Simulated scan of single mutants.
Amino acid sequence: MQTVTLQTPGQFKYHQSDPDLTLHPGEALVRVHRIGVCGTDLHAYRGRQPFFTYPRILGHELGVEVVALAEASTTVQIGDRCSVEPYLNCGHCSACRRGKTNCCVNLQVLGVHTDGGMREYITLPTHKLHPSATLSYEQLALVETLAIGAHAVERAGLTPDDTVLVIGAGPIGLSVIQFVQLAGVPLVVTDREESRLGFCRSQMGVTHTLPANEELATRLPDYLNGDLPTVVIDATGNPASMLQAFEYLANGGKLVYVGLFQGDVTFHDPMFHRKEVTLLASRNALPATFTAIIRAMEARQIDTTPWITHRSSLARLTDDFPGWLEPGSGVVKAIIEV
């Protein structure tokens, strides 16, 4: 089968490999049709991804077809089109027992801790497959991206009285924006790149956008009835941005980090206490989030069509991928067709 392996930072290898057709109880063999490329893949290529070892088959945003089952299943059938929940949790640690499977102590994420879906076939637990009778493989491949943003908004626990600043309008930021919009609360989006802000305005209907510069803190109240936002969600994974985010938050507000970097986050403790900030991390997503997103997409409440700006195949990926990292490439979301 066609396979792409990231051998070392900056070096992909396209090759043929033998699929493992062995199925254990509770498993399914799936045919990969579409793969979304995300920030994790870009960081791994650059050698900047935490919790990562080489060589590794990347790919965790997957739209797949069920081609074989180890046994009869009540949740999926042969021929089903599915999105993949790529977080392989142990089921017995403290986090799993409390329903927090997204941050399992022994978590193995496809394409990060264990080999992912940049290949034609992969074996997965059936309970990690989320089927849809109407969505395309392309739509299903974007469910996981949406789930990251949805979980961040879930962590924020928005109420009708909240106002939100989203920092960073890359793919994860876009997914956060999507669910803030569905919550119906006032929203401001900021980014360093005007092209991304323009995308938010033209393709996502965001009314209020601001450049991420030294004037941001003073301009925010102009868009939020004179106040700072009660919720700030940082989707940049940029240390300078993440440290600065405290300054934008209203007293008594919540700061959610959905982006991450390899380093320490520090803050001025008197300011932190004066504002009584609630600081939250957001990691991955929960099974129910995948189900809810698929239903919303089926109901046409979410349209990801404008997001897809670049396409490739497994055979062309080694040539196309480096260009997606170049400044000015215009990549919002790249899809690999298998």
Rank of each mutant, 00 (worst) to 15 (best):
V4R: 08
L6S: 13
Q11I: 12
K13V: 15
D18P: 08
L23D: 11
L23S: 05
P25L: 10
G26E: 02
L29Q: 10
V30G: 07
R31Q: 14
V32R: 01
G36Q: 08
C38H: 00
C38S: 13
C38T: 00
L42A: 07
A44K: 09
R46M: 09
R48G: 12
Q49E: 13
T53W: 06
R56M: 15
L58E: 05
E61F: 00
L62F: 03
L62Y: 08
G63L: 14
E65R: 11
L69F: 09
Q77I: 10
G79L: 02
R81D: 05
S83I: 06
V84C: 01
E85V: 00
Y87F: 01
Y87H: 10
C90Y: 04
G91E: 06
C93A: 11
S94H: 15
R97D: 07
R98Y: 07
K100V: 04
K100R: 15
N106E: 12
N106M: 11
V109M: 10
L110K: 08
G111W: 03
H113M: 00
H113T: 05
P125Y: 14
L129N: 02
S132T: 03
A133V: 00
T134L: 02
L135T: 03
S136R: 09
Y137H: 15
E138G: 12
E138D: 01
E138W: 07
L142D: 02
L146T: 05
P160F: 07
T163G: 10
T163H: 00
G168P: 09
A169H: 02
G170H: 02
V176N: 04
V180K: 09
V180P: 04
V180I: 04
L182S: 03
R192F: 01
R196D: 08
L197K: 07
G198N: 15
F199W: 05
V206N: 05
T209K: 11
P211L: 14
E215H: 12
A217W: 03
R219W: 04
L220T: 05
L224F: 08
G226S: 03
G226C: 06
G226P: 03
L228N: 06
P229L: 00
P229F: 07
V231P: 04
V231Y: 00
V231T: 00
V231K: 11
T236V: 02
T236P: 07
G237D: 03
G237S: 09
P239C: 13
P239G: 05
Q244M: 03
A250T: 06
G252Q: 06
K254T: 07
G259L: 01
L260A: 14
T266N: 13
F272G: 11
L279V: 15
L280M: 15
L280H: 13
A281H: 13
S282Y: 04
R283A: 11
A285H: 14
L286K: 15
P287E: 08
P287Y: 12
T289K: 05
T291P: 02
I293N: 10
I293M: 11
A296N: 05
D303F: 02
R311W: 05
S313Q: 08
L314G: 13
P322Y: 08
P327I: 09
G330H: 07
I335R: 09
